[in-house]
Write a protein that binds this DNA or RNA. Structure first.
Length: 183
DNA sequence: CGACTTTGACCCGCGC
DNA sequence: GCGCGGGTCAAAGTCG
């Protein structure tokens, strides 16, 4: 796979990359925050619908599962060698995009470190880690079975560095994401 | 040659 | 305890 670098902003390539809201519950089961968009407004540029003045269709869903209500597969610092240490749970943020490609170029550099088949999903889930030194951010990318046009991206952790390859509006989006994080 | 992907193995938590 | 599923590791392969 090449370094596809054109998915953001949405309009440049004719690919429809914009958020949709479909199976929010699906995400809610596995993540803490869900960012999605209420409607497929055909316009471009508003990636998650996270425009500054969020209109009525702009839903930034913030799950209440934060702070202790993590279920099942919540993220934890299980660096496999931290025996006695406390598990640190990082908040995760999931959002859906309608895209023909799986890898959204958000401006950071990611290294794929795993791929797993997921139960009840014909598409595999891919695991990526930020390659920036000292940055532990991970993300998972998965395509929905019932709508293969939708890619669910789950971010885990926050970057401790600047975006490396700024795209038009993703940095702004990230800034907004930080607003909704507890730290 | 460095950066990255692929992929099977391994580990761990959870439900039964 | 066992099996399953999710997440990670790491060696090998690929690519520019």
């Amino acid at each position: 796979m090449e370094n596809c670098q054109m998915f953001f902003p949405c309009s440049s390539t004719g690919k429809s990359v914009y958020p949709v809201m479909t199976t929010t519950d699906y995400i809610a089961n596995s993540s803490d925050h869900v960012f999605s968009h209420g409607d497929q407004s055909s316009s471009s540029g508003g990636f998650l619908g996270l425009k500054q003045n969020s209109g009525p269709n702009t839903d930034i869903v913030k799950n209440d599962s934060i702070n202790g209500a993590f279920h099942g597969s919540e993220s934890e610092e299980k660096s496999s060698k931290m025996k006695g240490e406390k598990k640190i749970k990082k908040p995760r943020f999931a959002f859906q995009t309608r895209s023909q490609v799986d890898i959204l170029d958000d401006g950071y550099r990611w290294r794929k470190y795993g791929q797993k088949a997921v139960k009840d999903n014909k598409f595999p889930r891919s695991y990526y880690r930020c390659t920036h030194e000292g940055c532990n951010v991970k993300k998972q990318v998965q395509r929905l079975t019932n709508d293969e046009g939708i890619v669910v991206t789950t971010y885990e952790g926050m970057h401790n560095h600047r975006i490396e390859k700024p795209t038009d509006n993703f940095e702004h989006i990230l800034n907004q994401l930080q607003i909704y994080t507890p730290f």
